[in-house]
Structure formats: structure tokens, C-alpha cells
Design a protein around this nucleic acid. Structure first.
Length: 201
DNA sequence: GTTCTAGAAC
DNA sequence: GTTCTAGAAC
């Protein structure tokens, strides 16, 4: 007799892959997720990062399918400046927070995305040295630098993989003082001394 | 990118 | 014994 059964984990994962695609394409579905989408205009979408690494963490993405910074040309300058202006407006909307706008030198997720991230780094999703270094070392490239480079050279030079990996593997260092904590839990405890939790007075 | 977990570090 | 990191994921 044929017995009905539900899919096992492996089969569920395979079928999810067919619908969702490889994990590195995940931003495409995030852009269409109403739970994550914050706003959009003719050329861009703003979403909440699915795994925010700080209290404020948005991604600004072009609607045009641009895989990464190596595909940028001078014709993209108006688009990038619009993304930058949206980021600056979000900064103005959060006057009490320090917020940075930038790109990862080598991004894991394949659609071009600009990070809008507050410098509290108070988030349970911030877990690894790699996370920390990707936002606090020169692996995080300011949006203004990308725009300036594109204006000057007409393209963005890709960081060598070796350089990028060594930045991510650098020992932990606080972004606000000289402390060099040995572990991530130590760093996260230390961060609370720089940023008082808001709300309760 | 995340999840999971073996085994290193403590 | 517990905490923490780092590598595989077919």
C-alpha cells in the first residue's frame, strides 16, 4: 500500500532551493518581501536587513540587476547618488545615532547593496569576528568613497581576495577605543560601555 | 549570507 | 565541564 508521508528535511531543502535559488541570491526575494521592504522609488528599494547587525540596519538596493561593484560604470552615478541621498535622509531621521553608509569590499550576497548601519552594533545577529571586521575595518568602504572613485576612474577596483580575507581575520578591536578583546562575548559586553541603552530613563 | 557542531580553548 | 570558534554544507 502507498503510505502518505511528509517530505523529509533533505527534500524540503531541495524544493526550497528550486523556488528560492542559491543563498547568495537571497536579496532578490528579500526585496520583494513586504515584511522587509521599507520604501521604494523609481530606481531603488530600501529593506531592513534580514539579520540586522545593529539597532538600525537597512540595505538600499538598485532595482537594476547589478551583481556587484565591479559592474558599476559612470552611467550609474545618478543611481548611486540617489542611494546616497536616501541614506543621508535616513541619517537625518535618526539624529541621535551615529550611522555609516557603505559597501562591503567583497559582498557575499550578489545584488549590489548599500548598508545603512548604526554604530551601536547592539544585535544578537552580530556573532562572529567576520561580522565585526566586515563593518569596522576597511572592508567596509564608505559610500562616498565609491562615488568618488567612480567619478574619477569610471569603475571600481575590486579588492584582492587575499586582502579582503586578511581584513576579516584580523584580531578583534573596539571601534571606539583601544580595547582588543579576546572573544566576541567580551567585545559585545564591552560595547555596552560605549552605548547606553536608550528608552528607560 | 546562516546553521550546525566538533573540538580547541579555557 | 563549559565556552567559543571555525569549517562544512552534495
Amino acid at each position: 500500500m502507498g503510505t502518505k508521508r511528509s517530505l523529509n528535511d533533505h527534500e524540503l531543502e531541495s524544493s526550497a532551493k528550486k523556488t528560492a535559488g542559491h543563498w547568495s541570491k537571497g536579496l532578490l526575494s528579500s526585496m520583494e518581501d513586504p515584511e522587509l521592504k521599507v520604501e521604494e522609488d523609481d530606481t531603488t528599494v530600501v529593506i531592513k536587513d534580514k539579520y540586522p547587525k545593529a539597532e538600525v540596519h537597512y540595505l538600499i538596493l538598485p532595482k537594476e540587476d547589478i551583481s556587484d561593484m565591479s559592474k558599476l560604470q559612470k552611467r550609474h552615478l545618478p543611481l548611486l547618488k540617489n542611494m546616497f541621498a536616501i541614506g543621508e535622509r535616513i541619517m537625518e531621521e535618526n539624529p541621535n545615532r551615529e550611522i555609516r553608509l557603505g559597501f562591503h569590499a567583497v559582498a557575499s550576497m550578489s545584488r549590489l547593496h548599500m548598508h545603512v548601519i548604526s554604530q551601536d552594533f547592539n544585535s544578537k545577529c552580530l556573532k562572529t569576528k567576520r561580522h565585526w571586521n566586515s563593518f569596522t575595518s576597511s572592508y567596509f568602504v564608505p559610500a562616498s568613497s565609491i562615488i568618488a572613485e567612480l567619478e574619477k576612474n569610471g569603475c571600481i577596483k575590486r579588492m584582492a581576495s587575499k586582502t579582503a580575507e586578511s581584513l576579516l581575520a584580523t584580531p578583534l578591536k573596539c571601534h571606539k577605543c583601544s580595547l582588543e578583546p579576546k572573544t566576541m562575548p567580551q567585545l559585545k559586553t564591552h560595547l555596552m560601555t560605549h552605548f547606553k541603552k536608550s528608552g528607560c530613563t
